[in-house]
Amino acid sequence: MNTDDFANVPLASVAPGARLAAAVVGADGHVLMTAGSQLTEAILEGLAARGVVAVAIEAPRGEPELAAARDGARQRLVHLFRGCDLDEDGGAARMLFDAVLERRLEDLR
C-alpha cells in the first residue's frame, strides 16, 4: 500500500471502479481478492454478502478517476443526508454536510 492510499474504507462508500490497495481476507483467513483488483458493482455486492465491511483502496491517480471519485463522494453524502432538509434544519445539517464534503474532497486532490 502507498502512503497516499486509503486504509479501512467502509465498503458502502467505495464507488465501482476503485482498485484494492491491499488484499481482502475473509473471516476464515482466505484471500478473497488480491491487491490491485478493480471493484465493480457486482464485486462490491459479493464482498458485502461475504461479510466484508471495509477495504483498503488505491488513491485515484488520473483526472478522470479523481473526478469520478469526487462525484461518488458527493453522491454518497447526498444519500446519507436524505432525511435532512439542507436548506432548513437550523443550518446544522448544512454545516455538517459541507464540512464532511470538504474533508472527502481534500483526500481527492
Binding site: 471495509a54 453524502l77 446519507l80 432525511g83 445539517a93
Partner: peptide
Amino acid sequence: AFDLAGDRDARVPV
C-alpha cells in the same frame, strides 16, 4: 455523516 461505520442504509439524523 462521516460514514466510518460502513452502513449502506445509514441516514444522518437531523
